[in-house]
């Protein structure tokens, strides 16, 4: 513990610090960034799915639906359940237009 690593989200170009033992999603939220979508924060909903392009990390438990067997080896994980062991380069999935610009959405989502 005590180490701090650098996480770079490639799609947005944003960079943030993440302490050893801290989840990548929590570190991002604490620094006020929104480059990875935030869902349940518990490995269940798959909202914060990312690909780790480079770097080592540990994982907590994640839903098999969103992280099927073998996906971890490909770096396809949930940001709320990975803990860096070094600097990371990550990439989140393509965002629907406008999502990064606003947390809010319209009723169209329901239709």
């Amino acid at each position: 513990m005590g180490e701090t690593y650098q996480v770079t989200e490639q799609r947005s170009g944003q960079t943030f610090r993440c302490k050893a033992g801290q989840s990548v999603l929590k570190a991002m939220e604490q620094q006020g960034l929104k480059c990875v979508p935030v869902g349940c924060r518990g490995g269940g909903c798959g909202f914060c799915k990312i690909t780790v392009l480079n770097g080592d990390f540990e994982c907590g438990k994640m839903s098999r639906v969103h992280v099927p067997p073998g996906a971890i080896g490909e770096g396809e994980v949930l940001a709320c359940r990975i803990y860096p062991l070094g600097n990371l380069i990550i990439e989140c999935r393509p965002q629907p237009a406008g999502r990064l610009a606003s947390e809010h959405t319209t009723t169209k989502v329901l239709r």
Binding site: V38, G39, C40, G44, C45, F47, S63, R99, E103, H104, T105, T106, T107, V109, L110
Partner: peptide
């Protein structure tokens, strides 16, 4: 009086 997207789309 506005929805957050998470409420509508985050499910298990």
């Amino acid at each position: 009086r506005v929805l957050n997207e998470r409420f509508l789309t985050v499910l298990t």
